[in-house]
């Protein structure tokens, strides 16, 4: 299951709450992956991965042979103790690796990744020659 940081329909969540509220159980197995958004811009590409609670040292980004490999590990507190009882658990942990095939217009020297406000942002600059060019044609 891909980790879903948000549910778009509260009513759906309420239905699920009712369905499972009597079971007294919760998911402890964690998730396989975090969701990613991909964007194309004038000067580059942007990958945005939802990673709340993920520390920057638990993120690894590698590039090799036109493939960008991203590893993200979330290790938040999930256990229930006598003095701090877990009553409800909807957040899970994950440790996954995802690969993205890159088009050949990326300048591999200019790939930057940062963890900000619970988002992992990977910015990849385009090679100058792949940017749309505007050529002025002289009319004689």
């Amino acid at each position: 299951m891909i980790y879903n940081p948000v549910f778009e329909w509260e009513t759906l969540r309420n239905v699920a709450d009712r369905l499972f509220s009597n079971l007294g159980g919760y998911q402890t197995s964690g998730y396989d992956a975090a969701p990613a958004n991909l964007y194309d811009g004038k000067d580059g590409y942007l990958i945005q991965i939802a990673a709340p609670g993920v520390k920057s040292e638990d993120v690894k980004v590698d590039y090799s042979g036109d493939v960008l490999t991203v590893s993200v590990k979330r290790a938040i507190e999930t256990d229930s103790k006598d003095e701090k009882k877990l009553l409800r658990s909807e957040r899970g942990n994950y440790d996954f690796t995802r690969s993205f095939s890159l088009s050949d217009d990326i300048d591999i020297e200019k790939i930057e990744a940062k963890v900000m406000n619970g988002l992992l942002l990977i910015h990849m600059a385009k090679k100058p020659e792949s940017k749309p060019k505007k050529i002025e044609v002289k009319v004689k």
Binding site: P5, E8, P52, K85, L87, N117, L119
Partner: peptide, 28 residues
């Protein structure tokens, strides 16, 4: 705009309840 419902973990200690919510990208 889409209304997003953040997932929550709820803890109970002797003198308090603790809610932990995932809200990536939020403006503090």
């Amino acid at each position: 705009k889409t209304k997003l419902v953040p997932p929550v973990d709820v803890y109970e200690t002797g003198d308090k309840y603790i809610l932990v919510l995932d809200m990536p990208g939020a403006d503090k």
